[in-house]
Write a protein that binds this DNA or RNA. Structure first.
Length: 556
RNA sequence: UGGGCUAUCGCCAAACGGUAAGGCAACGGACUCUGACUCCGUCAUUUCCAGGUUCGAAUCCUGGUAGCCCAGCCA
């Protein structure tokens, strides 16, 4: 048995300590998105972290929508979020919850606070509350309504529920400490009046609890033991603990914060993604250049690759920006032994084998080493006229260029050696035709060892090739200039999308379906686009290119 | 300028007072019917800085510095 030392992240250490010291018997985590948008790679980290922890410690993982503010929430997002989480592989079993289903309990909890003298109804306007709150450096001052009697507060709060007040007219506030150095503790608002239709509770309520009050209650009700959130909530933890303490829960949940996942040269953050979509810079929230879960799926990333990525990134409290190359590594790693390697020509130029019989076609057998042996075997038609990629031929090759050039011999993958004897150009100097001769003795599988060639190139037989359209994606963000300008606008890369319309595939691609992914030999991994199914051509998105250690010298 | 948090290789990230793991990237080299894959090798005498405690410090103490977060009736 391998005794690989796997270090534990800081959350695992906390959990194990809690378990050992009896602070909890089992582990229960949760993923609590607000249904106000689509999930992205950052959420994937949270989902997989929470789910992974529950699995590791034989506990439970709850799915919960934190839908306490109806202004932004929609059922449409609920469905999309659930689909994404399922796709990622996190299983909440029968524990799908909505914070809005706890509104009655939250109301009771608020009443309890009022009865304890720990909450009061405040008539100050939003602006006044802000003024009374003080600043980062100056303490706040007490609201003039802070000392209302318990009876009055009880009555007023009931009136709030019964719709006697307009939006903004009154709020319920926790009575904590207006001089606290932590602004969140300066008598925070815990309930507001909002006459809004809620996606789940309809018109039943016209008061809604605030996150800081609702969240600990949700956790406590569900028996969540470790409430894992991101760093910006650290300042809220004292309030979280206050709520849980004042409400006297027997097994108080514990909030733990970790650093968000940021990716280099990628737009994260809902606000900016939304802007890109609205301004038409991308194709929609699942545009493959984005890193929403749906975009990654459409691009061809697998759940396994995302899981691997998240695990590789680790969990800590230091702000970090992960290199995109790490994500690319993960998808390559996941796909390389799983996906068939087929030949595709993205920028075709015709290659004619002068000494190959005019009308002859033959079928060659090609084998790749894949996990699944059957997937790795295939038959490919070969004939006199082929397409090869333009970059696999050069009139005047630089040093160390091993592919085709006048007089050079290379292997056509899975087929024969061919030697370039001639080529034709049009008026503009563009190569239009390459002429070769082939050596029948060098056929793949013949065991020929007479001589070696340094280059192997891919090809498709012109007569049987399938037409295709291929989309290549680059970073959305201009790397040189950085992500954002001073005015908040973004430096977009104008070449983030390239559409290649004149591509050719070997016949084994026939029948490929949406989300099917392949390795185009020598070109990288590609996925059939789920949005485009065309009668005339298959449409592919590039998932990731292959590593290449030979780069053409840049033209002067 | 109040409070909270964070600083370990280009990027993530371990190390919990016992003498700086690992991964990505990069660079060499071997292999190769994909310049892929695979395989081997190189890559922090030093942990933001300056002092101190200690036989011994990335870890403890003191004082700095830098970055992130907080003044929604958002989450």
């Amino acid at each position: 048995m391998e005794n690989e030392v796997v270090s534990k992240n800081f959350i695992e250490q906390i959990i194990e300590k809690d378990l050992a010291e009896g602070h909890c018997d089992t582990v229960c985590t949760r993923f609590p998105p607000e249904p106000n948008g689509y999930l992205h790679i950052g959420h994937a980290k949270s989902i997989l972290l929470n789910y992974g922890l529950a699995q590791k410690y034989n506990g439970k993982f709850n799915m919960r929508f934190d839908d306490t503010n109806p202004t932004k929430e929609k059922t449409e997002f609920v469905e999309a979020i659930l689909a994404d989480i399922k796709w990622l592989g996190a299983d909440w079993e029968d524990r799908l919850f909505f914070a809005s289903n706890y509104f009655e309990q939250m109301y009771e909890a608020a009443v309890k606070l009022i009865k304890k003298g720990k909450a009061f109804v405040c008539d100050l306007s939003a602006d006044e509350i802000r003024e009374y709150r003080g600043t980062l450096t100056e303490p706040g001052k007490n609201s003039p309504y802070r000392d209302r009697s318990i009876e009055e507060n009880l009555q007023l709060f009931e009136n709030m529920r019964n719709g006697l007040y307009k939006d903004g007219e009154k709020v319920l506030r926790a009575k904590i400490d207006m001089s606290s150095s932590n602004i969140n503790m300066r008598d925070p608002v815990i309930y507001r009046v909002a006459h809004l239709n809620h996606h789940n509770t309809g018109d039943k309520w016209c008061i809604y609890p605030m996150y800081d009050f609702a969240h600990p209650i949700e956790d406590a009700i569900e028996g969540v033991t470790h409430s894992i959130c991101t760093l910006e909530f650290e300042d809220h933890r004292p309030l979280y603990d206050w709520v849980v303490r004042e409400l006297e829960y027997e097994k108080p949940p514990k909030q733990i914060e970790f650093a968000k996942l940021y990716l280099k040269n990628v737009v994260t953050g809902k606000r900016y993604i939304k802007k890109l979509v609205e301004e038409g810079n991308v194709d929609g929230w699942d545009d493959p250049r984005l890193v929403s879960i749906a975009a990654l799926r459409r691009r061809g990333f697998t759940p396994e690759s995302i899981k691997m990525f998240v695990e590789l990134c680790g969990v800590s409290k230091s702000q970090s920006i992960v290199d995109y190359a790490m994500l690319e590594y993960c998808i390559r790693e996941d796909l390389k032994l799983k996906r068939s390697r087929l030949m595709a020509v993205l920028d075709p130029v015709k290659l004619i084998i002068d000494n190959y019989p005019e009308d002859q076609m033959e079928e060659l057998e090609i084998e790749n080493n894949l996990e699944n042996e059957e997937l790795g075997k295939r038959k490919v038609p070969f004939g006199r006229e082929l397409y090869i990629d333009r970059e696999d031929f050069m009139e005047n090759p630089p040093k160390k260029y091993f592919r085709l050039f006048p007089g050079n011999e290379v292997r056509l993958m899975g087929a024969y050696f061919v030697k370039c004897v001639d080529y034709k150009k049009d008026e503009t100097g563009k190569v239009t035709e390459i002429h070769c001769t082939y050596d029948p003795e060098t056929k793949c599988g013949s065991g020929f060892t007479g001589r070696k060639v340094k280059g192997t190139i891919h090809w498709v037989a012109a007569r049987t090739a399938i037409p295709a359209e291929v989309r290549l994606y680059e970073n959305l963000i201009d790397e040189e200039k950085g992500v954002y300008n001073e005015d908040g606008s973004m430096n977009l890369n104008p070449n983030s999308l390239t559409v290649l319309k004149n591509c050719w595939l070997e016949p084994n691609f026939a029948g490929a379906k949406a989300y099917d992914s392949f390795q185009f030999v020598r070109q990288g991994y590609f996925c059939v686009d789920s949005h485009d199914s065309r009668p005339d051509a298959l449409v592919f998105n590039r998932i990731v290119s292959l590593k290449s250690s030979f780069k053409l010298p840049k033209p002067e």
